[in-house]
Amino acid sequence: MKVVNITFKFADGTPDKIHTAVEGESVLDVALDNNIQLQHNCGGVCGCSTCHVYVEAGMDDLPEISDKEEDFIDRAVDPRLNSRLGCQCVIQGNEDIVVTIPEQDFLGH
């Protein structure tokens, strides 16, 4: 089973947190399992944009972005080229992942 580290960075200045993840887990799963606040209004089924994150490293070891995910990212606050939905960032490679969780002081889509 593949194991990687996920580094969570926070836009609000909270210190970085590093957690271990195994193949098949999503960034959202790891965040919630480790008491990291990451909104997920749809329950993690790619039905909203509230688990929006910026992938700073490890993008090549994540699944390709789907058209559905891309549509929801377009609705997120301040989308960027490295934007992904945490629920869709499923661990499948060996590269460590670094994500920044943007400010979450909104209701979301």
Rank of each mutant, 00 (worst) to 15 (best):
D71G: 13
T14M: 00
E103Y: 11
N35P: 00
D61V: 06
D12K: 03
N35W: 01
V53Y: 03
G24R: 06
L85K: 01
L28D: 09
D74S: 10
Q92S: 13
P63V: 13
V90C: 06
I101T: 02
D60S: 09
L85A: 03
N41I: 10
T20V: 08
K17A: 01
N5R: 14
I18P: 01
D78I: 04
Q39V: 01
I18K: 13
C42E: 12
P102C: 05
D67V: 08
H40I: 02
G108R: 07
H52G: 03
G93A: 10
L81M: 13
E56A: 08
L32K: 15
C46R: 07
C87F: 07
T7S: 02
E64I: 04
A11V: 02
G86H: 05
V27K: 12
V3R: 10
D67H: 06
A11Y: 08
E70N: 11
C51W: 04
C89T: 11
C89F: 12
G44Q: 14
F8E: 09
N5I: 02
L28M: 03
L28K: 05
R75K: 01
V99D: 09
D16Y: 01
K9D: 11
E70L: 11
G86A: 15
F72D: 00
V22P: 00
T14H: 13
E56G: 00
F72L: 06
N41E: 14
D33Q: 15
I91Q: 10
I18W: 00
V53E: 01
H19E: 10
E25A: 10
N82L: 10
I65S: 06
P63A: 01
V3D: 04
Q104N: 12
H52K: 02
D74M: 08
A11T: 06
N5L: 03
L32M: 15
C42D: 13
V98W: 03
F10G: 01
G93D: 13
R80K: 14
K2Y: 10
D105F: 06
R84I: 09
Q88H: 11
T7L: 03
P63E: 07
T50I: 12
E25I: 03
V55G: 02
V53K: 04
K9M: 04
C87L: 13
Q92W: 03
Y54W: 11
I101V: 14
P63C: 10
P102Y: 11
G44K: 04
R80V: 09
Y54L: 13
L107V: 08
V30M: 07
I91G: 01
D29E: 15
I36T: 01
F72S: 03
C42V: 11
T14C: 01
T14F: 05
R80I: 02
R80C: 12
S66N: 04
I18R: 07
K68C: 00
C89S: 11
I65R: 07
V30T: 15
A21P: 09
E69P: 06
H40M: 05
E70C: 05
T7I: 07
N82G: 07
G58D: 01
D67F: 04
G58Y: 09
T14G: 00
G44P: 14
S66C: 05
